[in-house]
């Protein structure tokens, strides 16, 4: 029994931690929470459902509503768990160099976290100038994430990607393993289906 316990502890210690190629842009500024439960929420929406309406403050100073894009643009919503964490810090900078892919699919990107605006300001400054809106779902805390069913029990959002079409209908949902970055090709493939 003791042998099994010792073996288990060693295996857990050995394989703990997540792989991420943290950019030197964030050197010494990233808090590593370690390996987290891959998902920790229950979805309240499904593909084909109308997306819950929301209005949130943006980093730019304006407010953004999902309805702003109704009839005009497809909307990619990228929920990430928290600022200053390893995988999140290595996700949006990639989207920042593919504005052309979003535009060619008649889509906009909305990045959402449960952090407040000052935190988002400092964090995204490390990413260079972002072309897309970054929204704060800080107060009431995580209410938009909760309306989609992607608010975790610890108050962070899931690493979730949704596509809402011009009619306001949800066309794609990926509540991804929080410890891993979603492959870009999955998103692009789903965007191209909207054409």
């Amino acid at each position: 029994m003791k042998i099994k316990a010792v073996l288990l502890i060693f295996i857990i210690c050995f394989f703990a931690g997540n792989a991420c190629a943290a950019s030197a842009a964030f050197e010494n500024n990233i808090y590593n929470p370690g390996e987290l439960k891959p998902t920790d929420s229950v979805l309240k929406v499904g593909v084909g459902n109308e997306a819950p309406a929301f209005t949130l403050p943006a980093l730019s100073g304006k407010t953004v509503s999902l309805s702003d894009f109704r009839g005009r643009k497809n909307v990619v919503i990228s929920f990430v768990p928290a600022a200053w964490t390893p995988v999140c810090s290595d996700q949006w900078p990639g989207y920042n160099i593919i504005q052309d892919i979003f535009e060619s699919n008649d889509a906009v990107l909305l990045g959402i976290t449960v952090d407040n605006i000052p935190t988002l300001f400092s964090w995204t400054n490390q990413m260079g100038k972002l072309w897309f809106d970054v929204l704060s779902d800080f107060w009431p805390h995580g209410s938009v994430a909760a309306s989609f069913g992607v608010l975790r029990s610890d108050g962070m959002a899931e690493r979730a990607m949704l596509i809402v079409d011009k009619k306001g209908l949800i066309r794609y949902i990926d509540v991804h393993n929080i410890n891993q970055r979603p492959p870009l090709e999955d998103l692009v493939r789903e965007l191209e289906k909207l054409k």
């Binding site: 190629a21 030197a24 900078p93 990639g94 870009l184």
Partner: peptide, 12 residues
């Protein structure tokens, strides 16, 4: 060169 498309310094 070890890089990532998600790394702002690599992009720059």
């Amino acid at each position: 060169q070890i890089y990532s498309m998600y790394c702002p310094y690599c992009q720059a």
